[in-house]
Simulated scan of single mutants.
Amino acid sequence: MTKEFSMNDQRVAVVSGGSRGIGKAIALTLAAQGSAVVVGFHGAADAAARVVEEITAAGGRAIAFQADVADEVAVAEMFDAAEKSFGGVDVVVNSAGRLSLSPIADLDLDELDALHRTNVRGAFVMAREAARRVRPGGAIIALSTSVVGLRFPGYGAYAAGKGAVEAMTMVLARELRGRDITVNAVAPGPTATELFLQDKDEATVERLAKQPPLERLGTPQDIAEVVSFLASPAGHWVNGQVVRANGGII
């Protein structure tokens, strides 16, 4: 049975994809705000260990846990580890993701399957486990992308998967009626991460940076601050929403 959360307890966050990029910034920000954090990772064990070291060096509590988000057994074990180490789960952030850029006409279907295994099946598995485990007063947050609305060429498969994430987020928010759990998605615009910058020349990056009225790329910390608000008691009245954190790009 799900344990009732008391505001006197330390909140516990599970962050998939927490070893690098936006996920790392989210893990560090939630820890700085007082949450114990499970830093989920797939292959970057050393990077995840460094995130844990940074959190614990600052006086926080964290563990790293290896899990492929599309593997329901591994994800359940990650949540088990959160409950065993810290007593429960209050916040779940699924920031694990895979990016493939190609015109729709040219995309290899094996790559499409691999992309959607992580971005769609993985998001579903994380949401399903979160729905079973998160305590009252908690929050479930998925990472989408502003490309769903911006429709950049080459992002067809990626945007399609994230459109599915937004749809399941809206459905889950309604399915958890009466549980006092919020479900939202955050949709970053162009953000200066290793994943985003790979295979882009300087001119492309500069062009994308000029598109928002704020005339810069987002940073992982920009996105982490939005996520941390939605995860906090202060953001608990926001529910069933997609927050497009993109500097005003339209």
Rank of each mutant, 00 (worst) to 15 (best):
residue 219 T to W: 04
residue 192 A to M: 10
residue 87 G to M: 08
residue 189 G to E: 01
residue 227 V to D: 01
residue 15 V to I: 09
residue 103 P to M: 08
residue 25 A to K: 00
residue 107 L to N: 08
residue 8 N to T: 12
residue 123 A to K: 01
residue 62 A to M: 06
residue 223 I to P: 00
residue 189 G to T: 07
residue 83 E to W: 05
residue 99 L to S: 04
residue 53 E to W: 08
residue 212 P to G: 05
residue 40 G to R: 05
residue 169 T to P: 03
residue 176 L to V: 12
residue 238 V to T: 08
residue 65 F to L: 09
residue 166 E to W: 10
residue 51 V to S: 02
residue 137 G to Y: 00
residue 227 V to I: 13
residue 226 V to A: 08
residue 103 P to A: 10
residue 5 F to L: 05
residue 39 V to N: 06
residue 41 F to Y: 07
residue 206 E to W: 14
residue 60 G to C: 10
residue 180 D to N: 15
residue 217 L to S: 04
residue 240 G to W: 02
residue 24 K to R: 15
residue 106 D to R: 13
residue 110 D to A: 15
residue 140 I to F: 09
residue 149 G to F: 04
residue 128 R to Q: 01
residue 236 H to N: 12
residue 5 F to S: 03
residue 220 P to S: 08
residue 12 V to I: 12
residue 223 I to N: 00
residue 29 T to Y: 03
residue 189 G to F: 00
residue 89 V to Y: 04
residue 2 T to P: 08
residue 137 G to E: 03
residue 181 I to T: 00
residue 179 R to D: 01
residue 162 K to I: 11
residue 81 A to D: 08
residue 223 I to R: 03
residue 239 N to D: 01
residue 187 A to D: 03
residue 134 V to K: 00
residue 204 T to P: 03
residue 65 F to Q: 05
residue 155 Y to L: 13
residue 20 R to W: 07
residue 96 A to C: 10
residue 217 L to A: 06
residue 242 V to C: 04
residue 211 Q to D: 02
residue 7 M to P: 09
residue 187 A to M: 07
residue 205 V to I: 15
residue 191 T to R: 07
residue 44 A to N: 09
residue 68 D to S: 09
residue 63 I to T: 09
residue 2 T to Q: 14
residue 164 A to S: 13
residue 56 T to G: 15
residue 147 V to C: 14
residue 65 F to M: 10
residue 165 V to C: 01
residue 26 I to E: 06
residue 1 M to W: 10
residue 82 A to I: 06
residue 146 S to R: 09
residue 201 D to A: 06
residue 59 G to W: 10
residue 158 Y to A: 01
residue 159 A to F: 13
residue 93 V to Y: 05
residue 194 E to Y: 10
residue 162 K to Q: 06
residue 237 W to L: 14
residue 53 E to P: 05
residue 65 F to D: 06
residue 118 T to C: 09
residue 212 P to L: 03
residue 221 Q to S: 10
residue 42 H to L: 13
residue 15 V to M: 00
residue 157 A to C: 15
residue 12 V to N: 02
residue 163 G to M: 12
residue 135 R to I: 00
residue 29 T to G: 04
residue 247 G to R: 01
residue 248 G to E: 02
residue 227 V to F: 04
residue 95 S to W: 04
residue 167 A to H: 15
residue 8 N to F: 10
residue 75 V to C: 03
residue 144 S to F: 03
residue 104 I to F: 11
residue 38 V to E: 01
residue 27 A to R: 02
residue 4 E to C: 11
residue 197 L to N: 02
residue 3 K to H: 14
residue 163 G to T: 12
residue 3 K to C: 14
residue 228 S to T: 13
residue 109 L to Y: 12
residue 210 K to Q: 15
residue 159 A to Q: 12
residue 125 V to Y: 03
residue 114 A to T: 11
residue 154 G to E: 12
residue 249 I to P: 01
residue 12 V to H: 05
residue 153 P to N: 15
residue 154 G to H: 12
residue 11 R to K: 11
residue 173 A to P: 07
residue 130 A to R: 01
residue 106 D to M: 14
residue 21 G to T: 00
residue 134 V to I: 08
residue 178 G to P: 11
residue 134 V to M: 01
residue 181 I to C: 07
residue 201 D to Y: 11
